[in-house]
Design a protein around this nucleic acid. Structure first.
Length: 454
RNA sequence: GUCCCGUUCGUCUAGCUGGCCCAGGACUUUAGGAUUUCAUCCUAACGACAGGAGUUCAAAUCUCCUACGGGACACCA
């Protein structure tokens, strides 16, 4: 068994492509087969190296490893040429010299007449020797195939025109290259987006003309945006790497993506191992799904909550560098992360919460400070008690706060809140005693003084 | 326009070898509870079988029609 992911390098790896890759990858792993990465770059005008790199980066970040490839179609032109010649020689293809203008008007006329815009086979029997090469699609009959997710699909050959397999400059086009590659690479399962359903019958005809055995086809429904239209740039972030930048964990994205169209009963959370062991094409939904960032956020939070601090630190590395925050000095990063992981939906949020342990802030949040620092008495008393504290530990610090409460006969919140603001600058912090412990005595006292002077 | 595919709570979905479904889970929202804010956690509530016809003792599940949505119709992939 062998599956593949075959993106064209005309942009970054987007969410829809990533899900297709994930499904093809998961099925290969599940079947203990191979997963192939193939770059379909035959459109030299639109393909770029930057896009190739972006796709590779995306795959790598997601952890979707491939057993073979990446293969590049541009390196296989000789082979395509061979197949085109073979088709020509066996009268399965012909040269067509129709001008673009003729084709355009033909299309417009047909549409106006209420018919499907198709090539009329004008040059089919002219026996020309130059121009584009078209495949001689059968005129009659019906092409039927059993799609692994959609079920039986039939299209009449009358609905299919003679597709171009080689351009004027001799370069091959998509429908020819996929067939040749999938055959040559011994792909047994073609798993791709259902925008390719209409191409499938023509490809099947090509397989037949070449006398090659057909692979299984599995067409995945598209991912739609919140407005029901196909997911695109105008729906916001669609690049996989944009999700890394926004602080998502790769396994959270993968988990979200796998549940978009695939299910295993009521289970929502799947480890990578579970995805691999449980994945099956028959559990894929036929209908398109729309992307919902709120649920992704929830999943991400779940993964952050359950991850080990060590793993989180590893994932945090990029964000820390990106925001130029150094954590060598000051609090123990693992402890800080452990404190923060219960309260961060994203890594970006975590970094925001982690700043106060490694950087001083210039000002307090004005609104909060005006309120919390109106009466500085509690903080002043707290400062006194903390400054004489010998063992700088959460329990001891908590004890001090309680003492202040007793001495002044006020509630915990009256001391805890201002204290929290004093240390964080913005009021966002977890267990205040633990926070103070990690920040350390000198810094805690310094910030307390600053708050009292506010 | 023509062809192909699809249609269960706002969203992701279970169920689709008909009865266990006056439809289950999750996200979101709302209301409570726990908590030193927030977050987390617990409890509860709201909320859907697109519409119609048919088959059947019985339909979300099978058939047909309609509506709506998506996709394809490139010398793009």
């Amino acid at each position: 068994m062998k599956s593949r992911f075959a993106p064209s390098p005309t942009g970054y790896l987007h969410i829809g492509g990533a899900r297709t890759a994930l499904f093809a990858w998961a099925y290969a792993k599940q079947q203990q087969g191979h997963f192939v990465l193939r770059i379909e770059d035959t459109d030299r005008a639109r393909s770029t190296q930057t896009s190739v790199d972006a796709i590779l980066d995306g795959m790598n970040w997601l952890g979707l490893d491939y057993d073979e490839g990446p293969f590049y179609q541009t390196e296989r032109f000789a082979r395509y040429g061979e197949v085109i010649q073979q088709l020509l020689a066996t009268d399965k293809a012909y040269y067509c010299a129709c001008s673009k203008e003729r084709l355009d008007t033909l299309r417009a006329d047909l549409m106006a007449k209420g018919e499907k815009a198709m090539y009329d086979g004008c040059c089919r029997d002219k026996n020309l020797s130059s121009g584009v090469v078209r495949f001689k699609n059968p005129i009659a009959g019906v092409v039927t195939f059993a799609d692994a997710v959609k079920g039986k699909i039939s299209i009449a050959n009358q609905e299919i025109d003679d597709l171009i397999i080689a351009r004027t400059d001799g370069t091959p086009t998509y429908n020819l290259t996929v067939v040749v590659d999938d055959h040559d690479m011994a792909i047994t399962h073609v798993i791709r987006g259902d925008d390719h359903i209409n191409n499938t019958p023509r490809q099947i005809n090509l397989y037949t003309a070449l006398n090659w055995t057909l692979p299984e086809f599995a067409h995945l429904p598209m991912i739609l945006g919140s407005d029901g239209a196909r997911l695109s740039k105008r729906h916001g972030a669609v690049s996989v790497m944009a999700y890394r930048d926004a602080g998502f964990l790769p396994e959270a994205l993968l988990n979200y993506l796998v549940r978009l169209g695939w299910s295993h009963g009521d289970q929502e959370i799947f480890s990578l191992e579970e995805i691999v062991s449980l994945f099956d094409l028959k559990d894929i939904n036929k209908a398109p799904a729309s992307f919902n960032e709120e649920k992704l956020l929830w999943l991400n939070q779940e993964y952050i909550k359950n991850a080990t601090p060590e793993y989180l630190i590893q994932q945090l590395d990029w964000h820390l560098n990106h925001q130029k925050i150094t954590t060598e000095q000051g609090a123990d990063l693992a402890s800080v992360v452990a404190l923060l992981q219960q309260r961060s939906k994203t890594l970006v949020e975590m970094v925001a919460g982690l700043k106060m342990f490694y950087q001083d802030f210039d000002t307090f949040d004005k609104k909060l400070a005006d309120k919390q620092f109106k009466d500085t008495k509690p903080l002043a008393v707290l400062l006194e008690k903390l400054s004489v504290l010998d063992t700088w530990q959460a329990d001891e610090i908590k004890g001090c706060i309680k003492q202040v409460c007793n001495d002044l006969e006020i509630g915990f919140g009256k001391v805890g809140q201002p204290f929290r603001l004093a240390l964080s600058g913005n009021g966002n912090a977890g267990n205040i005693d633990a926070v103070a412990e990690l920040i350390g005595k000198p810094t805690t006292l310094k910030r307390l003084e600053k708050a009292i002077q506010y």
